[in-house]
Nucleic acid binder design. Sequence first.
DNA 1: TAATATTTTTAGTTTTGCCTAAAAATTTAA
DNA 2: TTAAATTTTTAGGCAAAACTAAAAATATTA
Lengths: 217, 217
Amino acid sequence: MTTSEENYLKVIYHLSNLSPKGVNTNAIAGMLDTKASSVTDMLKKLSDKELVDYQKYQGVFLTEKGKLNAKMIVRNHRLWEVFLVEKLGFAWDEVHEVAEELEHIRSEKLINQLDKFLNYPSFDPHGDPIPNAKGEIQNIDKQLLSEIDVNKTITCIGVKDTSVDFLQYLNKQQISLGTKIKVLEKEAFDGTIKIEINSSILVISDKIANNLYVKTH
Amino acid sequence: MTTSEENYLKVIYHLSNLSPKGVNTNAIAGMLDTKASSVTDMLKKLSDKELVDYQKYQGVFLTEKGKLNAKMIVRNHRLWEVFLVEKLGFAWDEVHEVAEELEHIRSEKLINQLDKFLNYPSFDPHGDPIPNAKGEIQNIDKQLLSEIDVNKTITCIGVKDTSVDFLQYLNKQQISLGTKIKVLEKEAFDGTIKIEINSSILVISDKIANNLYVKTH
DNA sequence: TAATATTTTTAGTTTTGCCTAAAAATTTAA
DNA sequence: TTAAATTTTTAGGCAAAACTAAAAATATTA
């Protein structure tokens, strides 16, 4: 499989969760920064290889084979992210680009030994689950911070948006995975939330609250 | 730079040491398993980018810029080999293919942090020197085992041929970097050498002796 | 040195993955 | 339910990096 094919599979995999009735050509094009016509070309190719179920104009689905391949790419990506952060001292907002390249190195031995070296981590530096060698994913209960009731205290366990801007915002506010947050007030009008972190008070927008995964105790 | 361009630079770099009066088109084609006509195409491209000095029919040289680029690729390759062996438990005959892929991941931070993580190694698992971040190479005195006089005891410090076949032969004979070897007899007729390793006797061909680097004490 | 052999280059093609522009299908709205 | 808007596909092209076949240059040797 080529790097390009792998990137398509990965994107279709991620979009499948959001649109379970078939992934749109345009949505794929948007994620890959390419044109819809290029996507159509590639969908035909992936279909020929039986990695996707594709009928024109009807959106696309991953086959089991395609899904397993996609999960392995996600596995590679997230394991490399753990490596970069834990072993090489990268910050969580610095790992994405490099992991995009590393994920395409195809070697079973490499990735399984890396997994072992890292002690079989279940989650990457952004809190996303890492599929194991069989493609199994350990999902845990998580809620968005925006869904938490006033006066509850929760722990930050992941981010939905992994953009550099968002991650650096969290750095600035000293929010990281494991940070305990108490919800003090919620503004009905605009969704703004007042929270307490390490006994200091902070007001965050609903956009922030909609991109932070947390767990109740 | 593309992966293909990098592979050409690397091959020209390695061949430059052997043929200092310009590297042949055919030699490059042989190393890259491609056709001479493809090499000519690429030499024009590399010449346009000022990575090589190229005049048709006259062989090719790396420019300073090309040489530095080539060294950085070699640096990447050898650092990854150290990582694979020391951290992920690969054997020295298993690292080449994967390192061929990893060497093309372009990130200064990645490679310099990896270097640090590995404690700034000077040599890779085959005894080849690793260029530092500036492209400087620490060369050490080495001789081929075939050049050593009878009755001398030397230490194995590297291999000239890094093919799987040769490395596995060495594994079988329990020869690795650091192994002490005493030269007992040399056969003038065919270059065969009788040696002593860990008080057991072994006869090796001249081909083996011509591919083992050793240092005298 | 001339003839032959080898090496290298040129010219023209292929494949992959992208593009634009236009046509076709589907969806939305009047 | 037809018209308009949007989405998707088709058709035809382009650039990179390979290829084959033929031409040109260089090297070898008789």
